[in-house]
């Protein structure tokens, strides 16, 4: 059964091709490419990816304009129906701005753009995005962002942590994120936002392939279903 995925491209997205290549390599099927101005998604999607980049030039706030673009209404609808949605980097910012995920992503505490491999801990290995990892496993995936400093109030953080919605945590100081949160799930578990770029770590030539299993997890779930 073919894995039907879609990669959304906003004006200023720059990781959409990497995301599409990763999805095709791991699943064997090329994803649909969907432009931000479209108002509908292809039918029967198994997976939607919001890529990294600088949608709308980061105007107003990172992800703010993209979150209000026509295609996001369709993405929000799909997410509410349970379709898996992955947002990476700017895609994560779009997901928080659209209200699909809690919190907000602020300027890095250092004020600097950070581009390097970071060590992460898999905090929840039972989600549809992380089932191919081991609980508590340490992995290495690159980050490349200016606004990755995850913020939510204490009450929200306690709830998110209590419900197992933290997917990945930084194992080193990166961007000032509260409680070192690198990736967070929605309450239903079908939406994941993360600052590190798994699509940049799917083959050894990338310098590491720890991101590959994230896509394998989503595909394994489909095959099992």
């Amino acid at each position: 059964m073919a894995f039907r995925s879609a990669v959304i491209t906003f004006p200023g997205s720059n990781c959409d091709r990497d995301m599409a290549v990763a999805l095709e390599q791991v699943s064997g099927t090329a994803p649909h490419r969907v432009w931000h101005g479209e108002s509908t998604l292809p039918d029967g999607l198994d997976f939607i990816a919001l890529p990294g980049g600088f949608s709308y030039g980061d105007y107003l706030r990172s992800g703010a304009m993209a979150a209000r673009s026509p295609i996001m209404r369709a993405v929000v609808d799909a997410a509410q129906r349970g379709v898996p949605v992955l947002g990476v980097c700017n895609g994560f910012q779009v997901l928080t701005e659209s209200g699909l995920l809690p919190g907000a992503l602020m300027r890095n505490a250092s004020q600097n753009f950070i581009c390097r491999n970071v060590r992460l801990k898999v905090e929840n290995s039972s989600s549809l995005f992380t089932s191919e990892y081991n609980q508590g496993e340490e992995i290495s995936i690159p980050v490349a962002h200016h606004d990755g400093n995850f913020f939510a109030d204490d009450q929200t953080l306690n709830r998110v942590e209590g419900e197992g919605q933290v997917a990945f945590r930084y194992l080193e100081s990166v961007n000032g994120s509260r409680r070192d949160i690198a990736g967070v799930l929605n309450a239903a578990g079908n939406v994941l936002g993360m600052m590190p770029h798994p699509e940049r770590a799917v083959e050894d030539d990338h310098g590491g392939s720890d991101g590959r299993r994230l896509f394998e997890s989503a595909i394994a779930r489909l095959v099992a279903a």
Partner: peptide
């Protein structure tokens, strides 16, 4: 509320 400010922060 819908755009100009992010009410989370």
């Amino acid at each position: 509320r819908k755009l100009l400010a992010n009410m989370v922060i």
